[in-house]
């Protein structure tokens, strides 16, 4: 059985259909990239998973359990979430920010602290140097490293990323993508990653779901995507500079 499963999932606001009968499966260890233009419904699909939005139809299951049957607060504490705007608490130190979910689920303080320090090291931040800093004392890339560490803190089995590196400069973004790939290998769970950056999708996705106007246009491996003939996939491929494929496209990772 798939770890995360969407079956005919719809979301509508009044008469307006935002997501139309979306179905896909995701296994542990996989990274599914939701790729689409602005307004295609990819962020909506992501937010249905942790019930930041409530679906209008269909079923979403995690490890065989319908997300609707679980208390939303408990569900969210078991799912890591990273957003583009970082969302770090400005009045908390880096260490406190990372230990947020462990604090909510009442881990002992020593364990919270140790976990935060371990994760800082894992995402490339020296715990002694950065642990007591506040978010405004960090660069954008460093803040997003804290955001990723925070999402991993309570050892979730599922991670959701909503265009996490979209606000970063291209070099920092590339570094963060590489960091993400490393962290994912240690993490071992499933990830859903929303982006409209094709190079990012090709380099980090094990599969790419292309969304257009709330519908799933196709589900591809990165290699298949490069040959895809669907309109949105072609439109994205046409944005690549002639003769310059993204470096990750030829060596997709899983």
């Amino acid at each position: 059985m798939a770890y995360l499963s969407f079956r005919e999932v719809s979301y509508a606001v009044g008469e307006r259909v935002i997501l139309d009968r979306l179905s896909f499966d995701l296994e542990r260890g996989e990274t599914l990239v939701l790729l689409g233009r602005s307004g295609s419904g990819k962020t909506t699909a992501l937010r249905l998973i942790n019930r930041m939005l409530e679906r209008s139809g269909g079923t979403i299951t995690i490890d065989g359990t319908d997300v609707q049957s679980v208390d939303a607060i408990q569900l969210r504490r078991r799912i890591g979430y990273v957003i583009q705007e970082f969302g770090l608490l400005p009045h908390w130190t880096v260490e406190q920010n990372i230990a947020l979910v462990p604090k909510l689920i009442a881990w002992p303080p020593d364990r919270q602290r140790q976990r935060a320090r371990d994760l800082m090291a894992q995402v490339g931040l020296d715990p002694d140097r950065f642990g007591h800093r506040f978010p405004h004392e960090l660069s954008g890339g460093q803040r997003q490293r804290v955001g990723v560490a925070r999402a991993l803190a309570a050892e979730p089995a599922l991670l959701l990323f909503d265009e996490p590196f979209g606000a970063l400069d291209p070099v920092t973004r590339h570094e963060m993508q590489q960091q993400f790939i490393q962290v994912r290998e240690q993490f071992g769970g499933a990830s859903v990653f929303v982006t409209h950056d094709l190079a990012e999708a090709l380099s980090i996705g094990s599969r790419i779901a292309v969304l257009e106007s709330g519908k799933l246009e196709g589900l591809f491996t990165p290699e298949q995507f490069l040959q895809a003939e669907t309109p949105t996939a072609r439109a994205f491929l046409n944005t690549l500079p002639q003769g310059l494929g993204p470096p990750g496209a030829r060596t997709p990772r899983t």
Partner: peptide, 11 residues
């Protein structure tokens, strides 16, 4: 964004 992130973390 803070409210969004805090809610999504399970507050």
């Amino acid at each position: 964004a803070l409210r969004e992130a805090s809610t999504a973390m399970g507050m």
